[in-house]
Design a binder for these strands. Structure first.
Lengths: 302, 302
DNA sequence: CGGTAACTTGAACCGTGTCAATCAGTGTGG
DNA sequence: CCACACTGATTGACACGGTTCAAGTTACCG
């Protein structure tokens, strides 16, 4: 099964293969009674929103659905009925343009909300694909909407979540049009690390669940540029790369790597933090792979 | 007053200079009793959403605020209290990055909703600047929220509007990372034309209200590239350009201008529609300024 | 009518895409 | 068990689209 096939969206796998055998799910240790259903309280907890104080335990039960890597949670054009909340696993959200090229929009993971883009036209504008086996909570929009009318806080949380998503996309737009390739990749790694950290995993060592091609699509780069940039960071001693295994060694350097400023007045930095790789660093600087450091940081290094 | 000044966000002008003298507003002929206030019905009409059937006329009156070109409707970090609906005029919504560079996110005009990004953190994430004199309806979020709880349709419309905005931004992300400079500019002109058309203006001849720099920021290009691309389209006979006055001559060509496909197998198109400019066209094609035409259209031209 | 901001155009540079070759990892079938 | 196919990743050579820098023109405004 090729999760890379672009235009061809075979429906070899049903979008919703409901109800598998009950498994002890929740790889991240989220509390679970071995069930396939979650309460409203569970859902709120997962989304990090306060549970409505007056909520009673029979307000709703939400079905879990499991997807295997490669399966689609929803496809473009599919009638919008449900929102989805990721309970475990790793996915990608993609747009398919008029020529069948896929554009990765996000890499949702535990606690993320999917399907919001379907509200507008009542059809999904994007598709969500599992990159690993996933456990997803299915929230019928009608049910959720009704609950929102009962519990004002819930509705408010929904507005808040949508607003957050909007802000996130704005930041994405800004990044896409303003940053260099190195800065994009550096930020990508930093953000991914932070997200893993928030889930209780290491924010320094983690596995990329997506291909270089998918990273490139997400960042507006080619897979070769992504690969080269990772290699460069590796040689620099900022990270370690072994296939999809990433280790972040110098998070500060990653976080402060920026786009080349309009002025060509960038000071040729000759000495960098980590001594054991400094010669490689200067080699890289000579090749202009380190366009600029945050100025105050750069000066603090000399 | 420099609407171009980047980092420096002087508060020389109050964000809200409430209550000016009553003017016969509404340049676009929107119905108006010469007032500074709009009813819920007015607001719904402006937003193209159905007025709640049960709404009574005293549900709310919404204040109009006028801004002169260059004034800010809201600024980044400002406490979020209101949503804004553009009744007339032309604005830009911008993000300011950590180095003071501005990133244009959108060019709101009549009927557009502003300020949604403030819901999440209760502070505005972007700022909105008037590019021309504007008449804006101020909708207190609390009031609106309360009305939403009274009228389910209204709340639903709000979800829908936010979802639409999300989809629009996704399309923007896709465009930024996948299209060539020419395709970006072509789409920009097409979209702008369509928006003017929907407002009852000409979709063929219109004035750009923003600078080349702002267009470039919006499209992820430099102002020089924007200028050059417009000149090229002009020479091609696809549009006319006289400073900010744009005339769209060949909307089809504009709409079907695409990015160079991954395969280098692009057929060298030798003949194009408009005969009186065909020689210039082929010159352009030779320079690869016309990377590809929509295939079925291209074939229909020969 | 001067001063400034916006726009246009040219020339050179360089970051990133494109193309191609190679290698590693994984699954498959003889 | 190995050969084979296939996908993903790495790396190099090269080309080119778009940025950068610079100069000059036009439009606008006090």
């Amino acid at each position: 099964m090729s999760s890379e096939s672009t235009a061809i969206r075979t429906t070899d796998l049903p979008a919703n293969s409901h109800i598998n055998f009950p498994v002890l799910a929740n790889e991240a240790g989220w509390r679970c009674q071995g069930n396939l259903w979650s309460t409203l309280h569970d859902v709120c907890e997962l989304l990090h929103i306060p549970t409505p104080v007056s909520a009673n335990s029979e307000d709703g039960l939400f079905q879990h659905v499991r997807y295997k890597a490669g399966q689609r949670i929803h496809t473009i054009g599919q009638h919008f009925e449900n929102l989805y909340i990721v309970n475990s696993g790793f996915l990608k959200s993609v747009l398919i343009d008029e020529y069948g090229n896929e554009q990765v929009l996000s890499f949702p993971m535990k606690g993320d909300l999917l399907g919001i883009d379907g509200i507008y036209t009542q059809r999904h504008a994007s598709e969500a694909v599992a990159l690993s086996d996933c456990d997803v909570i299915l929230v019928p929009y009608k049910t959720f909407s009704a609950l929102g009318r009962t519990y004002a806080e819930l509705e408010q949380a929904m507005f808040s979540a949508m607003s957050r998503e909007l802000v996130r996309e704005q930041a994405m737009i800004s990044m896409l049009s303003a940053l260099s390739a190195e800065a994009k990749v550096a930020r990508f790694l930093t953000n991914l690390g932070e997200r893993f950290g928030q889930l209780g995993y290491s924010n320094k060592v983690f596995n990329l669940r997506m291909t270089r091609h998918e990273i490139g699509s997400y960042l507006g780069l080619t897979l070769e540029t992504v690969s080269r940039t990772l290699s460069a960071f590796n040689e620099l001693g900022m990270i370690t790369v072994d296939q999809r295994q990433i280790g972040i060694i110098d998070p500060i350097a990653l976080k402060t790597l920026r786009r080349l400023p309009p002025a060509k007045s960038r000071s040729k930095v000759s000495k960098i933090v980590s001594e054991k790789v400094s010669e490689k660093v200067s080699a890289l600087v000579a090749k202009n792979l380190l366009p600029q450091w945050n100025s105050e940081l750069a000066s603090s290094l000399n």
